[in-house]
Amino acid sequence: MSSLLTSIDSKTNMVGKNRLELLLFRLNSAQLFGINVFKVREVLTCPELSALPGAHSHVRGIAHLRGEPVTVIDLSQATGGKPITDLATAYILVTEYNRNTQGFLVAGVDRIVSSSWEQIHPAPQGAGKAHYVTAVTEVDKKLVQILDVEKVFNEISPADETVSESVKEKSKDVDFKNLVVLVADDSAVARNQVKRALSAIGVEIQTVNDGRSALNWLKNLADEIGGDISHKMPLLISDIEMPEMDGYTLTAEVKADERLRNIHIVLHSSLSGVFNQAMIEKVGADQFIAKFHPDELVSAVQKWMSNRAPQA
């Protein structure tokens, strides 16, 4: 386990190169699941858990980690499976999502593998809306499922999606008519959160679920308009972790196209850490916002769209 932790701490050089590293784990079967190592603070054998009266049924308890209480969620149970019963052999993935620290209880950890976002594919169509798989890939000829942990966490602790009246009031000074905001995020929960927040101030949005689709959408619009599209589509809000193409690579591709480079880009991600700001500057994004705070997001939209005069 110590070598695994060392690997998580040390491998940061792939960010911004459309590459990632996945920590592979199992729940209650041989099926492999994956999570981006940048969301994992540490991996621990399951410590003694304290009961939390009145908690959600998927919360197994509280782990006290160096004096910090961390809520532990049974990831198998939370995604529709059976509870993990053998805590003596189980592990906790301590993660940072949406400005919160939480632990996910898993039955076992496998290893860390390097991959490319081009090898990460969206969840198959036809699976319905209730599933928790946001992407899939293949490792050693075995299917690896990447879970929509944002959906899991939001079902247990729903985010406040209310835009304050004071922030809404500021939108009266911005003319959003004939303007479109593109939102790229592989999580349906995240897309809907952004959509509801921006709808509160009357912004028209277009959504896509991966970086490649976002870039193609923008280029198709540029072909249709025949030049700079920022007067029509002044703002892109993009997740960082996405199948096919991550948000950093998407940003760099947008800035490299003279028809797109005037679009403002806000990277909106549950990833956190000092490397984000460095990467924002490197690829040319305008702002990073950690998910999910509706007032902060709407204020950013107001800021980056206020200097764009709509054209017919």
Rank of each mutant, 00 (worst) to 15 (best):
L4V: 08
I8D: 09
K11V: 11
T12M: 08
V15T: 02
V15Y: 15
L20P: 04
L22I: 05
R26Q: 14
S29H: 05
S29W: 02
A30H: 07
G34S: 03
I35H: 00
F38R: 12
V40R: 02
R41E: 14
R41G: 13
V43N: 04
V43R: 01
V43A: 07
T45H: 13
C46R: 05
L49W: 06
L52H: 04
G54T: 06
S57H: 08
R66V: 07
E68P: 00
D74M: 11
I84N: 05
I84A: 04
D86P: 01
I92Q: 02
Y97L: 15
N98Q: 14
N98V: 14
Q102W: 00
R111Q: 12
I112N: 08
S115M: 08
I120L: 14
H121L: 15
A123V: 10
P124D: 02
V133R: 06
T137D: 03
V139F: 13
D140W: 00
D148R: 06
E150A: 12
E150N: 13
V152L: 04
E155G: 03
D160I: 11
D160R: 02
D160A: 12
S164R: 12
K168I: 09
E169M: 13
K172N: 03
K172A: 10
D175A: 07
V181P: 00
V183G: 06
D185G: 11
D186F: 00
S187Y: 04
R191V: 08
N192F: 04
N192E: 14
Q193H: 15
L198N: 09
I201F: 05
V203E: 09
E204T: 10
I205M: 10
V208H: 12
L215G: 03
W217D: 06
L218P: 06
L221D: 04
D223K: 11
I225D: 02
E241M: 05
P243L: 06
T249V: 02
E253I: 00
V254A: 06
D257L: 02
V266M: 05
V274Y: 10
A278D: 09
M279D: 01
K282E: 11
K282P: 00
V283C: 11
V283W: 03
G284H: 07
A285K: 08
A290D: 03
Q302F: 09
Q302E: 07
K303S: 08
A312D: 12
